[in-house]
Write a protein that binds this DNA or RNA. Sequence first.
DNA 1: TCGCTTGTACGATGTTTATCGAACTATGGC
DNA 2: GCCATAGTTCGATAAACATCGTACAAGCGA
Lengths: 100, 100
Amino acid sequence: MRAYKHPAIEDVRPEDFFHALSDPVRLAIVRQLAREGEASCAALDGGRPKSSMSHHFRVLREAGLVQTRPAGVTHMNTLRRDELDRRFPGLLDAVLAAIG
Amino acid sequence: MRAYKHPAIEDVRPEDFFHALSDPVRLAIVRQLAREGEASCAALDGGRPKSSMSHHFRVLREAGLVQTRPAGVTHMNTLRRDELDRRFPGLLDAVLAAIG
DNA sequence: TCGCTTGTACGATGTTTATCGAACTATGGC
DNA sequence: GCCATAGTTCGATAAACATCGTACAAGCGA
């Protein structure tokens, strides 16, 4: 649990990025993170079980979209905006615009 | 076979769009269509069976990415660039840039 | 009409995926 | 050390999906 391993941004494949965005629950997470900047996992569950949310956060992490940082007993998540914009210029912004 | 039914661009959901892009075969199709403008299904198979390609084209059609037009015995496919850009401004261009 | 070509429809198979409960780990407060 | 809290991991289940062979439909040319 201690340290999460995030992929190097250069290793993120487009198909993984898009797959991470192909689920409504994960789109909601991304939307909220874009709005609030940073949030814990628990803050973003929509009444869903922890294990479901953990799964979705893992997909987002492994696709390079989200960075998770342990902060005491909670874990704070942020979008990897700058890195993603370097890897896929303009893509994340267009995605965020598309999902409102 | 005669006439394909494509979804109205307003009905295209972001998650369907992204799901269509979550497969390497379909990304290759989109890349080629962006490059060549228009192509038949057969022209884009990479030695894959027809039924596999037909499946992927169907996914792309139903996600609103591709328009298919019967032209004699072949079927020509194009990206729905203008419509998509209206629905998701800037998104398709960023996608195409990302997938090279 | 017959044959050829292009793509679809159907059905089967194996893989991936989403969902969730239960057990577990890590951290902080007392 | 003990307990509560936040997430992860594991295991099971059901649904979705990719792949491909075979059969079928539609158009064109001879």
